[in-house]
Write a protein that binds this DNA or RNA. Structure first.
Lengths: 104, 104
DNA sequence: ACAAGTACTTACCTTTAAGTAGGATACCTA
DNA sequence: TAGGTATCCTACTTAAAGGTAAGTACTTGT
């Protein structure tokens, strides 16, 4: 982003915030990390998030290509989530934010 | 943050988001960068932000110790903002986000 | 009088994000 | 029947964030 009159529609920071903004997304990404996680696992790791929000945010992250979702055709349902290559690019951001939050 | 049952009140990512979350803060920090900026300067650099939001977010960032505000006792009013040492620690985060947004 | 400069405040409204509660699917077991 | 498994949806409500418009202060110039 050039600091001179760049329209907000072209701002890469805005673009990133569109993808990962909000209360829960970065924490979801962090909890998945390099693992393959199931829905119920995430629920246990993040007891404070509502079902509705977890599902909503997982879905959004899948749509943005940050997460990959693998569904198994079975009952009870089985779904697995993992970071895509694109998702992994967010890890350094998360690490820096974790560090900043721990120190400040 | 340990990935096991850490209360959200202790989550460093949450703590960082408390400080810099929202639509405008990171972009304000970016526009100030290593400079000393006046209110009116920021308005020109960020024509899309409302006066109310700019002032509100500047104030918040000052309260969180990310920005330093210097007021001159004069008319017309003159106020300058610059990043604190703490604020500078956010620059690598912003850079990474800029990069991510530009590529994705 | 009005306009310009600079930086802010306030009341109210609109939009967005998050939360609550109830419900759904299909199969199995007691 | 009830309860369990696992994942998800929907309607509605609440909370939070962002926006709009009008106003403030003081000085100087037209």
């Amino acid at each position: 982003m050039d600091k001179i009159f760049l329209e907000q529609s072209k701002c890469p920071i805005k673009k990133t915030l569109d993808i990962i903004g909000g209360k829960w997304k970065l924490r979801i990404i962090f909890q998945i990390g390099s693992e393959i996680r199931r829905y119920g696992e995430l629920r246990k790791l993040m007891p404070d998030i509502s079902e509705k929000m977890l599902i909503q945010e997982l879905k959004s992250l899948v749509e943005y290509g940050v997460l990959s979702k693998k569904s198994y055709h079975q009952i009870p349902p089985k779904v697995e989530y993992n970071l895509t290559e694109k998702g992994f690019k967010l890890i350094p951001i998360i690490d820096l934010m974790k560090e900043f939050g721990a120190e400040n």
